[in-house]
Each structure stands twice: as structure tokens, then as C-alpha cells.
């Protein structure tokens, strides 16, 4: 019987088997990495905004409290984006002729709201609520990073389900006293954090990781 395959085909066959296995795994790894990469999660991506509003300026340097603008963050699901009136309570006089602030003045005059581009936007099938996190001792910086150092706002965390669950499994690793919620610099060494965290879990009656990882907590 004549040989159908040339001996060199052995190498090709091995390569095919090898390639098939690794190709499949590689594709999975690629998808896995891609879905968590900044391309997909848009971490550290800055949006084009109608006004170059800077948290670094307003929160960092001027020390304005987050709640001056994000009024409903303590009690509601939605943190609130300030209306034009809030900006104008200062900019009626400060930089009142600046071309940078022209859209703000136009908006007040016409009643047409400014259209801020959302930086964080969960899919509609996931439920998030600010109030409970603030009341139970999760600081803004744990989820939004050092907002007071951002000249334009970006996402500091991926907001994937994996990320939510990492904290929901072990809330004590992230809790802080309520008085430090708005403190952007607060951080404790790990051992101390675990001690304080465990105490706060008891004090604030924080639910267990078992409850907090139920699908219905976030998909309701």
C-alpha cells in the first residue's frame, strides 16, 4: 500500500492537535481578558463633556462637600447630578464671563439642561443603590477612587459583577466609620482594617456575605 501521508505530516498532525487545544483555550482566555480590559469596562476613560468640570478643582482644592452637588447620595439609589442652578450659585460671580462656562450660563437662561455624558452606567438588569452603601459605611473612594484628584471624571473600578461580589463576600475588608465616608484619603493598614471592619459589621448590622451574594440582591 502506498503511503498516503508524507512523514512530515506527523509534525502537522501534532501541530493541529496542539493548535486545536490551545486555540480553544486561547480564545477563551482572550475573551476573558478582553471582557475585563479597559477596552470593555472603560476604566480610566475620560468622556467628552459639555463643560470641562473638574472635581480636582472643586472638591480637591476648594474643599466643597460631595453632597453640595450630589444631594441624594445618602438616602436614594441615585446620587444626583447637579442642576445648572447649583453651578450658578457660585458662577453667577466667579468666572462669570469665562467662555468655558458659556454653556452653563446659556442653560440657565434657556432652561435647557446641560447634557453630561454618563461615566458610570450599569446595565438596566442590575440594581444598584447608593443609600444603603453610604449608611453601612462604604466610602465614595472605595468605588470611585480619588475623585478629588480627577481633572475630568473617569471610572476607577470596572463595575463588573465580579467586582461587586468581591466586596459583597467580605464587606468587612472595605467598611469605614460613617464619619469617614466622604474622606478621600482614608485608609488603614490591613490588620487594623480587619479589626475595625469586623466591629463595624456588628455595629451597623451589616448583612452576611451569604445574603449579599444572592442573585436577587442585584437582579430584582
Amino acid at each position: 500500500m502506498p503511503q498516503i501521508f508524507h512523514p512530515a505530516m506527523n509534525t502537522v498532525a501534532r501541530l493541529t492537535v496542539f493548535g486545536a487545544a490551545f486555540g480553544v483555550v486561547g480564545t477563551i482566555v482572550l475573551f476573558y481578558e478582553y471582557s475585563r480590559s479597559p477596552f470593555q469596562t472603560e476604566v480610566n476613560v475620560v468622556r467628552e463633556q459639555p463643560v470641562q468640570f473638574s472635581h480636582e478643582h472643586h472638591s480637591g482644592q476648594l474643599g466643597i462637600d460631595c453632597r453640595y452637588c450630589h444631594t441624594t447620595v445618602e438616602n436614594g439609589p441615585f446620587a444626583n447630578i447637579p442642576p445648572t442652578h447649583t453651578c450658578m450659585s457660585c458662577h453667577s460671580q466667579i468666572w462669570a464671563d469665562s467662555p468655558m462656562l458659556k454653556p452653563v450660563r446659556d442653560s440657565l437662561a434657556s432652561g435647557e439642561p446641560l447634557r453630561w455624558e454618563r461615566v458610570h452606567d450599569l446595565p438596566d438588569f442590575a440594581y444598584f443603590e447608593h443609600g444603603i452603601h453610604i449608611q453601612k459605611g462604604v466610602g465614595c473612594a472605595s468605588c470611585h477612587g480619588r475623585v478629588d484628584e480627577m481633572p475630568l471624571t473617569w471610572k476607577a473600578e470596572p463595575l463588573t459583577m465580579e467586582w461587586c461580589l468581591d466586596c459583597h463576600r467580605h464587606p468587612e475588608t472595605h467598611l469605614r466609620p460613617r464619619s469617614e465616608i466622604f474622606n478621600m484619603e482614608y485608609s488603614l493598614p490591613e490588620r487594623e482594617q480587619n479589626m475595625v471592619g469586623k466591629r463595624l459589621v456588628r455595629e451597623y448590622g451589616v448583612q452576611s456575605g451569604y445574603y449579599l451574594t444572592n442573585c436577587t440582591v442585584c437582579h430584582r
Binding site: F78, N80, E112, P113, R115, P123, D124, F125
Partner: peptide, 25 residues
């Protein structure tokens, strides 16, 4: 469709029936 369901999020731009924002003055 499930990522962006046909309902308003707070302060989302409204349709021409509602006006510029889903939040009414």
C-alpha cells in the same frame, strides 16, 4: 435590549413628548 431597557433612568433625556429631561421641573 436588556442592557438598555425601555424605561427612563433618572435625568435621562426625554422623548419629544416629555421634554429635554425625564425629570420634570
Amino acid at each position: 435590549d436588556m442592557y438598555d431597557q425601555p424605561r427612563y433612568e433618572p435625568l435621562e433625556p426625554g422623548s419629544h413628548l416629555i421634554g429635554p429631561s425625564s425629570a420634570r421641573p
